[in-house]
């Protein structure tokens, strides 16, 4: 008996130690990467970084203003487009999903798309929109990013709606509400925190995506508000600059990377806060 207890105790201790080591590895990796990112990136973030456009190699000054604005526009358009599409499709899957063939196929296809290589999406949008309109543009970049974001929003919305307790739904029906009211005013409202979290996570995911933008939005050395033209964006600019041999470009690239990481962190924190507050009800 005692030997058996010793063995169990040993296994338990071992597993605790190993899990501690796992955490140590995870945290070490995190500190390493983020440390590198912030040590190299934060010094680059001065006032010029946010207000001036990308400089030529070796030129003095310059910043990432065109890329920052471009990314905000592209990601903004993506969010505006993919949120309603994703939520409404997710509602359909949750509400009518068990009875509909379309729903189960959509769900499966959405799951496959969640793992799609982002470059394939970019190439598809290139073939469909860029070659036909005969120019690169910011909005085709948004289309590509939407194709990545929509599956995320659809699945999170559906998963969240499925978590609504049946009793809540039934109570609403018992009050004589029509189905669409139950779905939107009761169920969706009940999980709005989770749905918003899903949207924020989708945005965080696409914020750092490079491959879909390579052949859609291309990139732009200069500043533009025009989404019908090649548009500067943070990920592709980072890609070009970080590998270059020019010091001013490299430091800007690290600054931009740190900026993306900070923004994504803020979005994640925001998602948590929203989820907590909304789900307290």
């Amino acid at each position: 008996m005692d030997a058996r207890y010793q063995r169990r105790k040993f296994v338990n201790g071992l597993s605790t130690t190993l899990s501690g080591i796992a955490v140590a590895i995870g945290v070490a990796g995190l500190v390493w990467i983020l440390g590198t990112l912030f040590i190299k990136g934060l010094p680059a973030m001065n006032w010029a970084f946010f207000t001036e456009s990308t400089p030529a190699p070796g030129s003095e000054g310059g910043g990432m203003a065109n890329a920052i604005v471009g990314s905000l526009l592209i990601v903004g358009l993506t969010t505006v487009v993919s949120t309603p599409i994703g939520i409404l499709a997710g509602i359909y899957l949750a509400e009518f999903g068990d009875r509909s063939k379309v729903a189960s196929v959509t769900r499966f296809v959405t799951d496959i798309m969640l793992s799609a290589p982002s470059i394939v999406i970019g190439l598809f949008v290139y073939a469909l929109f860029v070659t036909t309109t005969k120019h690169f543009s910011g909005w085709t970049g948004s289309v590509a990013l939407s194709l990545i974001a929509v599956p995320v929003v659809v699945r999170t919305t559906e998963n969240m709606l499925k978590l609504v307790p049946g009793s809540l739904r039934e109570a609403a029906f018992a009050l004589g509400m029509p189905r669409w009211r139950v779905s939107l005013d009761v169920c969706l409202r009940a999980v709005q925190g989770g749905v918003i979290t899903g949207i924020l996570l989708a945005v965080a995911r696409i914020a750092g995506e490079t491959a879909p933008l390579l052949f859609t939005a291309l990139n732009n050395q200069f500043f533009t508000w025009n989404m019908n033209e090649p548009m500067a964006n943070l990920p592709v600019t980072i890609f070009n600059f970080a590998m270059s041999p020019y010091e001013n470009w490299q430091s800007l690239a690290w600054g931009a990377s740190a900026l993306i990481a900070i923004l994504v962190l803020l979005l994640n924190v925001l998602a948590r806060v929203v989820f907590q507050s909304r789900s307290k009800s």
Partner: peptide
């Protein structure tokens, strides 16, 4: 740990 998920893949 979630911060790691936020690091852009190009980094």
């Amino acid at each position: 740990i979630e911060l790691l998920a936020g690091v852009p893949s190009i980094i």
